[in-house]
Amino acid sequence: MRVKSGRDGGSTLRFALLLTAASAALLLAGLAAGSDGWSLAWTDEWMLVSEIRAPRSIGAWLAGALLGFAGAVAQGLFRNPLADPYLLGSAAGAGLGVVLVLAAGGAAGASIGLAAAGALLQAGLVGAAFAGALCGVGLTLLLARGAARPMSLLLCGVVVGVLLTALSDLVMLASPEAMRGKQIFLLGSTGFLGWTSTAVLAAVLAAVLPAAMRVSRALDALVLGEASARSLGVPLQQVRLLLVGTMAMATGAAVAQAGLIAFVGLVAPHLVRRCLSVAHGPQLALSAMAGGVLLLASDIAARTLVAPQELPVGVLTAVLGGIYLLALLHRRQA
């Protein structure tokens, strides 16, 4: 469904409207997708709709939007259509953060008493996942000595990913309780998103999207190659740092609130680029919207496909994303 670029901006606007309409329709569907099948008796079950389905649906959209945005930044930054938001060690960092807090909570429970450990856990896990993701990316930047060379940044991302995962394993060896907790915490799931999570996700999206869009012309310039972008006076070093920062924030927030959700960040920007040719500024915004639509649609499917049981949404996105990429590959070969 390629939108032909007829008029300047016209196709972009049409695509944005399409995504907005899809988001609105899915949000309505999200409010109606109950645990016992579709239900529009909202007045009778107002509590369920306002306190569970609404924050969950909006939260799923926002988490998807953050992942779609982060994916678009990653693919633009690395000039690689297979780049995804978890590339720079954020996933492994989040995992390590969670494991450390769980292990510390276990150890603290023995020494400083339950009350303190309980409080640590309560506030700690979400914050730890977020901080861990940022630290993972920070470590990658440190090892790559800045964001100047994308290739070494990518390699360092892989190294940091392996390193931090190994560290998590090590911690889990010392305190096996943490393993189960990490598994529970990082399973991609939209089921536990409440209004607080939604507010956090919205705040992060509101901060990173405009910031990245302001420097998005630098991503356009990078299409010409590194040297050409520099010849245009683009302060690549600073811009890359800023973009990596927004990417880490977005990924960290999404992981902390909804666990590891596969493929949304990879597929959303793909979808946008397939449908229309557009500069990175609108591309970032549209990828965010597409990511939101994808994850919300997956969330609704996860809720309704096997109702009254529920599928973990991360499993569903992995399957759908895999199918999409396979289809893409098949079409390329054909």
């Binding site: 309560q122 799931s189 409440g194 529920e310 973990p312």
Partner: peptide
């Protein structure tokens, strides 16, 4: 299960007590 407890179904059952474990994400909700 513990990692994928269904919040809405739990709430719809109108329980006056839920027994879970400390690391279950559902507790927060």
């Amino acid at each position: 299960g513990l990692e994928d407890a269904q919040v809405e179904r739990i709430v719809a059952l109108k329980p006056d007590l839920v027994l879970a474990t400390s690391s279950a994400r559902v507790l927060e909700r």
